[in-house]
């Protein structure tokens, strides 16, 4: 066939019978020659085009959070502020659970209100939603059967859709980082630009772990419920274990075993990138994606 010479050549029927010529009656498609291929990453484009509304909504949610919280810092913050006094009067366990130990500093404030709490919640929710829609949602709706009957391989589908989730999460992280940088001076946060990048990378990695977990369970089971539970569960368990680990030095080691801890335990907004932590976040996401590819390749796709 004249199409897609670059594609993997699992079958080349005409090669078996070079005498036939291409435009034979058995190959009507070959008659309509104009070769429109190759289209690069068609599924990625399809996913991104189909999800711009949702991407916009989540971006607005994150932006609103930053714009609501950050300008409050000058009136709350400072070591001698009323907030510090209030926090000092609260039980230390609660402070540690909320991650408000360092809330009097700009980086501590941004991290504990946004990256560690509301932003984390929104990021995890968006990642889980997209991750579970990518495979399980489409499979339950019957759309996966249709698309896989077309000229696309299963690993291509998983990889392009994972990439589509990743791109959207990168946008969320970038929007957050840009807005934070924008309000940084007026909100007197005193954040260094590189530290913002480092925190956003950790923020992204945390989202990727949830998203890829949801996508992987979708590829394994085809069930949206399980897929959503996996994405949300990873985030929730990670947060809770981290909170327990924050309670005392004895439990602190627990934080090294959770994605939340990998992202934030070395306070990237104050001290810069924690490369091993980032490697763990991105590595685990990559591992989940590899499992997703293997899982979807081997199983039956269920119908609508």
């Amino acid at each position: 066939m004249s199409r897609d010479a670059t594609d993997s050549v699992a079958e080349k029927p005409d090669d078996e019978h070079p005498g036939d010529g291409h435009a034979s009656a058995e190959h009507p498609a070959a008659l309509q020659a104009p070769d429109a291929h190759p289209h690069t990453l068609p599924l990625l484009r399809q996913s991104l085009v189909g999800s711009w509304r949702s991407l916009l909504a989540w971006s607005l949610g994150l932006a609103a959070t930053i714009l609501l919280y950050m300008p409050l810092f000058p009136s709350l913050g400072g070591a001698n502020s009323q907030l510090s006094a209030l926090l000092a009067s609260l039980p230390p366990q609660l402070i540690k659970t909320l991650g408000y130990t360092d809330i009097a500093s700009g980086s501590g404030y941004a991290e504990s209100t946004f990256f560690g709490l509301v932003g984390f919640l929104l990021m995890s929710a968006a990642a889980t939603t997209w991750g579970s829609a990518a495979i399980a949602g489409d499979e339950e709706s019957g759309a996966l059967e249709l698309i896989l009957a077309h000229g696309v391989s299963r690993h291509q589908l998983v990889l392009e859709r994972s990439l589509a989730v990743t791109v959207r999460l990168v946008v969320l992280a970038a929007v957050s980082g840009a807005l934070l940088a924008a309000v940084n001076p007026s909100s007197q946060l005193g954040l260094a630009g590189t530290d913002i990048v480092a925190a956003c990378a950790a923020f992204l990695g945390l989202g990727l772990v949830s998203g890829s977990a949801a996508l992987m369970v979708g590829a394994l089971t085809g069930r949206r419920l399980f897929s959503t539970a996996a994405g949300a569960g990873v985030a929730a368990v990670s947060y809770v274990v981290n909170a327990i680990g924050s309670q005392s030095a004895a439990l602190d080691a627990l934080r090294s075993f959770t994605p939340y801890g990998w992202a934030y335990r070395h306070t990237p907004l104050a001290t810069g990138a924690d490369l091993p932590g980032l490697a763990l976040l991105f590595g685990l996401s990559a591992l989940f994606t590899v499992v997703a590819v293997a899982a979807l390749r081997r199983r039956d796709i269920s119908g609508a």
Partner: peptide
């Protein structure tokens, strides 16, 4: 056969949603 084969097939699922 993979994608190359399926490009040569037109499929209408039984329950198209």
């Amino acid at each position: 056969g993979g994608p190359e084969l399926r490009r040569r097939i037109g499929y209408l699922p039984g329950e198209l949603r």
